[in-house]
Design a protein around this nucleic acid. Structure first.
Lengths: 144, 144
DNA sequence: CTTCAATTCTTGAATATTCAATATTTTCCA
DNA sequence: TGGAAAATATTGAATATTCAAGAATTGAAG
């Protein structure tokens, strides 16, 4: 039986929040070299497969809700990193595509992100990292 | 060497964000029965040791930055869940304390949170959970 | 002792996020 | 077919968060 008076630091929800915050902060720091928030990097990365992705699909993939995504995409369209195309098969949908400028930026961001992953591998260890990834994936699976 | 064209779903930062989002969503759902956001539960839990905690200390512990915490505490003071006392030893500081009403609420929230942890233990497994916690703690450690 | 830098917390303006409502298109079924 | 219900995206108002500046106190160095 779980103890209700356990300190907050023993709760899984808290540990996840803390780890997420820390890793995200580090990543943010790297990406700020290009002046891009983490969410925009995620968007570019998802779109960089060259296929069109609907807003709903994107929102799921990048962990943002619809209105927030719409407004972020507005900014990225202004910056000509991505562009909208009406889906010809279902005109309720908008398909998002990455622009050439977006691709160039995405490459730079990818290498900044890889820097970070390598930094984690060094200080945290190869084995721990892959084990942690495995456990996180399985936690996410078991939550659906 | 990490691959820069790896899908976003393979990045540790993304897996952490996804897991955190999901677990937090579940916890939020439970706590909403008492109409309390997760951050307020954390605050109450930290203060429930009965000691006075300064705002800076609290902000660290509950993963909020100072201005956000100040405004959240303002609301909680209005709800008479916590109260401020000027630190007699250092009058720059404010010490936060939990009220009796806060303690009662905290107990209810604790049991809702324990419900969730038990639900996770069931679907995810005892072993995986403790192993994941261990790895997260060590990741957090290695990031400081 | 006094003055200047550092610490702690709060405030106000700028920014971002969220909720609810809206517009459009598609799906379904009677 | 016709029309109601569902799906998709956006908008606008309400709310929350953040950044930069400010006020108060302490520490520390000359």
């Amino acid at each position: 039986m779980a103890k209700s008076n356990a300190p907050i630091t023993e709760h899984l929800a808290y540990l996840l929040a803390q780890a997420n915050r820390e890793i995200n902060r580090q990543l943010e720091l790297r990406l700020s070299k290009e002046g891009v928030p983490v969410e925009q990097w995620r968007i570019l990365k998802v779109l960089s497969d060259g296929n069109g992705h609907s807003m709903g699909e994107l929102a799921d993939a990048v962990l943002l809700n619809h209105p927030t995504l719409t407004k972020m995409i507005d900014r990225m369209v202004s910056d000509t990193l991505v562009y909208r195309v009406q889906d010809p098969n279902d005109r309720r949908k908008v398909l998002m595509f990455i622009s050439d400028r977006g691709k160039v930026l995405c490459k730079k961001l990818n290498s900044l992100a890889v820097d970070q992953e390598e930094h984690i591998l060094e200080s945290y260890g190869d084995k721990s990292t892959s084990e942690l990834k495995r456990l996180l994936e399985s936690l996410i699976d078991s939550s659906n």
